[in-house]
Design a protein around this nucleic acid. Structure first.
Length: 417
RNA sequence: GGAGGGGUGGCAGAGUGGUCGAAUGCACCGGUCUUGAAAACCGGAGUCCGGUAACCCUGGACCGCGGGUUCGAAUCCCGCCCCCUCCGCCA
């Protein structure tokens, strides 16, 4: 949610910023509705003031044992007018809220118009054989045919050593994030609609979200939703910031509209596990924190020995809540190209405003804070990258030594062995 | 799932139609007193939306959330959310 006051006092600044992502038109509608609201509000408040004054007079009269019939009769009319005006105002506010909710966050001035590769790190492995893809390497340890029988397309059974690999990966990541000051969290994955509105996934991406109609609950596509809501409605002392959380949860995505895309394997599935970083910070620290999250993502990829590149995401692909976004894409030998593994967004005060999360500077007034999120490890895709980059001629896979300490096997035997 | 009870300011806790934004206590901040501290005493303090350039001032709103009744609602009525107790069920 954008700041109405800023929008009012600097409409041109906001319009220019929004124009970069094609949202300038809806801005005029918001301004119009805001003016409408502010025209109605004082009228209603004047009537209320009149009522409040009359209430005192009536109570005083009654206390003195006098009749207040004439005043009560007069106030009936005022009450009736206030009721009508109140209905108008309510309607105007509802329309304003609706229009405001449709406006995306203002992009960072540095966010590019086109995806921009910032750097490539690590060397894609050279094979003296034709590299296999992750499904071939995994064999029945990724069982999609049986999963399809159970649940339909884009589901998988993860089996055997790959389960141990996942658990080691998660454990290792949470420990690493702990060293960076992130508290581990396992959040609910079924949430109410407000949480999705608050994080900007609604009304932006409804077709991606599973809904349990009987219970009015939604399955989250990322623990970002639950972590952001952790402090919803709170005022946090500035000295307590930054607050950093590492959420571990399954994620659910309908993938409606991606028919035919990435249909082989577990690159794009309806359910996957993910460790997500989430930070609440002073707005002045938001850009630094964003770079910090990106650095951690890179540290993880580097330690896992995965070649990757960093992409500064184009404004049109930011999503409603992000002002700037960096993706890390890992090299996939079977495809001969980089594919998205992690993503980190600076959502500035956009989510904090919607969720009413504020900070209180020492002795000062509450003000919005900034929130940021970043993938630490998207387990499924990371397993893909580990399998494909660590593969040997015989189909076995060498697992990065860092994971051994958390219980991962040093090598995975070839499929079917 | 069944039966009851309850949601009031940072916390505890009064208030069942009228000068209630809300008693009282604790905690908090400032002051007086004191060599200093404690105690005592005095005072202050919430959030949001307008009027405003404005943290002064001023109008309005906020007693879980949303409606309704009424001249007037923390208080009465309806719906929803949440918490607690008992029974049943259950990983």
């Amino acid at each position: 949610m954008l700041d109405l006051k800023r929008l009012r006092s600097n409409p041109d600044e906001v319009r220019c910023a929004l124009a970069r992502r094609g949202g300038a038109d809806s801005l005029s509608r918001v301004i119009e509705l805001d003016e409408q609201r502010r025209a109605l509000l004082p009228q209603l408040e004047a009537l209320r003031a009149e009522q409040n004054a009359a209430n005192e007079a009536i109570s005083a009269a009654k206390a003195d044992g006098q009749s207040a019939e004439s005043q009560i009769a007069a106030m009936k009319d005022v009450a009736a007018r206030a009721k009508l005006l109140g209905a108008d105002l309510q309607q105007a506010e509802a329309e304003l809220d609706g229009a405001l909710a449709l406006l995306p966050n203002l992009p960072d001035a540095d966010a590019p118009d086109e995806d921009t590769v910032l750097r490539e790190c690590g060397e894609p492995p050279q094979f003296d054989f034709e590299p296999r893809d992750h499904l071939d390497l995994a064999g029945e340890r990724i069982d999609m045919e049986r999963a399809a029988r159970l649940s339909g397309a884009r589901f998988a059974y993860l089996r055997g050593e790959l389960v141990m690999l996942e658990l080691a990966l998660v454990r290792w990541t949470l420990e690493l994030l702990g060293e960076h000051g992130f508290e581990p969290v396992i959040p609910p994955v079924l949430v109410r609609e407000e949480a999705l509105h608050g994080t900007g996934f609604l009304p932006d991406t409804e077709q991606q979200i599973y809904r349990l109609a009987d219970d009015d609950l939604f399955l989250v596509g990322t623990s970002e939703v639950a972590l952001a809501s952790l402090h919803a409605g709170e005022i946090i002392d500035a000295e307590q910031l930054p607050l950093r959380y590492a959420g571990f949860s399954p994620c659910f995505r309908r993938e409606a509209g991606s028919a035919g895309k990435d249909t082989r394997g577990i690159f794009r599935v309806h359910q996957f596990d993910k460790v997500e970083m989430f930070s609440f910070v002073d707005p002045d620290q938001a850009q630094d924190e964003h770079l910090r999250l990106l650095a951690i993502e890179e540290q993880i990829l580097t330690t896992l020995g995965l070649p990757y590149r960093v992409v500064d995401i184009a404004i049109n692909d930011l999503g409603a809540s992000a002002a700037r976004k960096f993706d890390c894409e890992a090299w996939l030998p079977s495809e001969g190209r980089y594919r998205e593994l992690t993503s980190t967004s600076n959502t500035t005060d956009f989510q904090a405003r919607r969720l009413a999360i504020r900070m209180r500077p020492q002795g000062g007034k509450p003000q919005p804070l900034a929130t940021l999120n970043g993938t630490a490890v998207a387990v499924g895709r990371t397993i893909i990258a580990l399998l494909e980059n660590g593969q040997q001629a015989d189909g076995s896979v060498v697992i990065p030594p860092a994971l051994a300490a958390c219980g991962a096997p040093a090598t995975l035997p070839p499929a079917g062995a």
